[in-house]
């Protein structure tokens, strides 16, 4: 299940992500907890989750590492 909700279509990233689901499966981890583990703010995690902001490769890998998943299990390229 992917969550990529953005109010501004122009701001939509070209990929979806499963961060919200993975957080839920990881003991209902909060955005703040994930942000602390990754080294970004809660607001940045929220922006990534909503598809408003494209994280750097490093942050993307860090997020995947927190959940113990490969990158493609967290982020999926959105086909046209």
């Amino acid at each position: 299940m992917a969550f990529a909700v953005a109010t501004d279509p122009m701001a939509q990233t070209p990929f979806t992500n499963d961060i919200r689901t993975l957080r839920f499966l990881a003991g209902e981890m909060t955005q703040g907890d994930l942000g602390d583990k990754v080294g970004v703010t809660r607001q940045t995690i929220a922006a990534i989750e909503q598809g408003k902001y494209s994280p750097s490769l490093e942050v993307a890998f860090r997020i995947a590492h927190v959940f113990g998943k490969p990158l493609e299990a967290v982020f999926q390229w959105q086909q046209d």
Binding site: G39, V40, T41, Y53, P55, S56
Partner: peptide, 10 residues
């Protein structure tokens, strides 16, 4: 509750 050091988005 926070830091003034910006993360990559900020």
């Amino acid at each position: 509750r926070g830091s003034m050091i910006p993360d990559e988005r900020e």
